[in-house]
Design a protein around this nucleic acid. Sequence first.
DNA 1: TTTAGTACTTGACAATGCAAGGTAGTATGT
DNA 2: ACATACTACCTTGCATTGTCAAGTACTAAA
Lengths: 105, 105
Amino acid sequence: MNAQFKKGVLELIVLKSVVNKDMYGYELVEEVSKVVDVNEGTIYPLLKRLTNDHHFETYLKESTEGPPRKYYHITASGILYEENLEEEWVEFASKVSGFLKEKKK
Amino acid sequence: MNAQFKKGVLELIVLKSVVNKDMYGYELVEEVSKVVDVNEGTIYPLLKRLTNDHHFETYLKESTEGPPRKYYHITASGILYEENLEEEWVEFASKVSGFLKEKKK
DNA sequence: TTTAGTACTTGACAATGCAAGGTAGTATGT
DNA sequence: ACATACTACCTTGCATTGTCAAGTACTAAA
């Protein structure tokens, strides 16, 4: 997969995932991987960024299957940010698709 | 506009433009700007990259409206590359859209 | 001759993804 | 007890690519 296409979109996919329900990092890596190839070294720094920007809050929870999990919960600011980003993506994607189709004629 | 969405897509838009007809840099800046905001400092290095990678060939042509124009002509390799990239983009965009819709439920 | 428009180039910078490595806890098999 | 594997988290250094800002140079119109 083209690595460059992902730029910015990963953030949107992570936000959109966490909107639905609180999730922990490792779980997000697997969730996001269903849509685009991604590895841990990408997701963890991204989660830290979004938390620093107050789009996420975190809490720890014990697990019976390994070390404690750090859950990410979306904030009000995160919800707004996600809605905005999604709108921008839809508009962007449709512009690009429109251009490609136009040139195809 | 989200700067990150553009990564990789600009290359596709530039390639797709030049597939149709030979174009010069300044003309491409204006053409591409119809789809996504972009500035000269982005396009010229991109054209140089694509030329170095043998996806474009160039030639100079005099102009009555300023300095000579450097025209870009797509090569066979460039055509293949463009087709590939376009295919990847379509697949990528549809995956992302699909994910967003699925989460919306 | 000054200004505006066309045209190209470059260098320092920022954002973001990747590869590779490290730390730990739990569970399973020997 | 020990090794292995899976879960879970985190960090560092790097590459790629877009942005900003500045500079060069030619033509034409005021």
